[in-house]
Nucleic acid binder design. Structure first.
Length: 561
DNA sequence: TACGGTAGGC
């Protein structure tokens, strides 16, 4: 081994435990010169990428500069900025001037705070408050802001509440940032009264305080309260609008979401332009409402304002056109993307599948694999759905059995659902049943429904009876959609008494089920109708039109009974 | 001297 390589190995062993030695060997480190600490620090201040950072770190070790705390501080900064927490943590724990400055404690806590369910921020905080001998290293406003933010990313709000107590005791709650992080903590955990109390007692508030409070109500689906808070806000920014609009979308109030979007445009004129998040939300509302005209309007806005290159916008556009029934335009958007990512591909594949264009879905899927884009769970669900709806049994089987080995994705119950549906629709009912029984997860109602559906198509009476007995035992009376299916199945098998039983059971519970709702977009306005709805301003005219469309007899039965 | 808090789709 040449001397230079031996030295590299030696350095590498010390710093990185050989884990990525190959990549280290291929780096271009200049060992012949020995940069002084000032030069190394200057290099670190440029925030180099990880591979260069490791070279500088190696130089620090080989030149015995590991006790230079300025250099170690800079190295920690750099490792944290490249999200290499493990390296940063090792240097932090072995800091030459232990304990490191409060700045470094804060930076470490901040980095860990972004990781879900990490115990590290609280553990570090415990260590920090245990350093009683050093009066210079004490928690400050930054520490509490990061610490509380980390608690919002945990499963339980318990740590956050305890830390809130410490914050009050130490008088940090008067700080705007600390206060805002506490409001957000309570908002995230649905403790809206507590959030409000902190909000009310703050000496000053800003748009973050208001948005966090508003977001708390939106997350709980309390959109009336959220709207009231929004109306009281002194200033609204794009995030506040995004919180309100997405709140409406989360609870299925798409018309309200779009109304809000237009209100935002009216209010802000040119001062505040909708950003990516708001546009994605608005497109999602259009997709769910099948509001093509509004969707097209937003698309024109996106083109005019240069949002076309944003991947999430493209994904939302593909989805919007697809759900509005214009698959050709969905493909046009997809085709215009230079380098589609997994979300773009998934949206396009699902679009084709929903339109019954399984072979197109499959073609896009193969194109994706050829481009080395790794599919995710939703991509596979999309392509399996496409195969199922288009009878592409062989292709569907191939993909289903390769999910684990090729793409490291363990099939979920939804994938099994698609697969059983694929086999059932194609008439391979016994195989489908075997999969449903032997699958490693518990078969859900969707799977049994797929099997029943297949029994109905192929009139497999005996098998249907067996499945029905099982389904009735486990699920009957819990799923409306299932009862309709069972009733239809009995009807197709001419078992009229059973049909009557199921219908009676359904009508007894009818008051508990949600009211059906339909809507239609005319000239950019959404008109919404519920069962027996008389509220539309033109209901009289609508009834007249309906009269001319359906027979008088039917009209009498439906509307004047 | 350096570090803060809020938002979205398939």
């Amino acid at each position: 081994m040449p001397a230079i390589l031996r030295l590299k190995v030696q350095i590498f062993k010390q710093v990185f435990n050989f884990t990525t030695f190959h990549s280290f060997c291929s780096s271009r480190i200049n060992i012949s010169t020995n940069p002084d600490p000032k030069t190394l620090n200057h290099l670190l201040n440029q925030r180099p990428p990880l591979f260069q950072l490791k070279q500088v770190h190696a130089q620090v070790i080989t030149q015995s500069l590991s006790s230079n705390s300025t250099l170690v501080d800079s190295l920690i900064h750099c490792y944290l900025s490249t999200k290499s927490l493990t390296f940063a943590r090792t240097l932090f724990d072995e800091h030459p001037n232990y304990p490191p400055s409060i700045l470094l404690w804060n930076l470490m806590i901040r980095s860990y705070s972004k990781i879900l369910n990490s115990r590290e921020p609280v553990d570090l905080f415990r260590r920090l408050i245990g350093l009683e001998h050093d009066p210079l290293v004490v928690p400050d406003n930054y520490t509490f802001t990061f610490l509380i933010t980390s608690c919002t990313h945990q499963k339980s709000g318990l740590h956050g509440i305890i830390i809130h107590g410490i914050v009050i005791k130490n008088g940090h709650l008067s700080n705007l940032y600390v206060g805002n992080s506490v409001i957000n903590l309570y908002a995230v955990f649905g403790r809206l009264d507590d959030a409000r109390k902190v909000f009310d007692e703050m000496p000053e508030r800003d748009v973050f305080s208001w948005t966090s409070l508003l977001g708390g109500h939106a997350k709980q689906g309390e959109m009336e309260r959220a709207t009231e808070i929004a109306a009281m806000m002194p200033i609204r920014n794009m995030v506040s609008w995004a919180v309100i609009i997405s709140g409406f979308i989360d609870c299925g109030r798409y018309i309200d979401a779009l109304t809000c979007f237009h209100e935002m445009l009216r209010e802000s004129h040119d001062s505040l332009k909708p950003n990516e998040a708001v546009l994605v939300c608005a497109l999602s509302a259009c997709a769910n409402l099948e509001a093509l005209d509004q969707g097209k309007w937003i698309h024109a806005y996106i083109n005019k304002n240069g949002f076309t290159k944003m991947s999430n916008i493209s994904t939302a556009l593909i989805d919007m056109y697809s759900k509005c029934g214009i698959i050709r335009d969905a493909y046009r958007v997809f085709h215009s993307i230079t380098q589609p990512d997994v979300c773009n591909y998934t949206s396009m594949i699902s679009g084709f599948s929903d339109h019954g264009l399984g072979s197109n879905a499959l073609r896009v899927f193969h194109q994706m694999i050829a481009q080395n884009v790794t599919p995710n769970e939703l991509t596979l669900l999309g392509v399996l759905k496409g195969c199922s709806h288009s009878g592409l049994v062989e292709e569907g089987c191939f993909i289903f059995y390769k999910t684990d080995r090729y793409w490291n994705i363990e099939p979920k119950v939804e994938h099994y659902g698609c697969f059983v549906d694929l086999l059932g629709r194609a008439g391979h009912l016994k195989l489908a049943l075997a999969i449903a029984i032997k699958m490693p997860l518990d078969a859900d109602i969707v799977i049994w429904r797929a099997l029943l559906s297949a029994c109905r198509i192929y009139k497999y009476v005996n098998l249907a009876d067996k499945i029905l007995a099982y389904v009735e035992q486990g699920y009957f009376g819990h799923f409306n959609g299932n009862e309709v299916l069972i009733s239809n199945l009995y009807a197709s098998l001419s078992k009229w008494e059973r049909v009557s039983d199921v219908r009676k059971s359904m009508s007894k519970r009818e008051h508990k089920s949600s009211i059906g709702c339909s809507w239609i977009e005319v000239n950019g306005t959404i008109h919404e109708f519920r069962v027996d709805d008389q509220l539309h301003p033109q209901i009289g005219m609508l009834k007249d039109v309906l009269k001319s469309l359906i027979s008088d007899e039917m009209f009498e039965t439906e509307f004047h009974k």
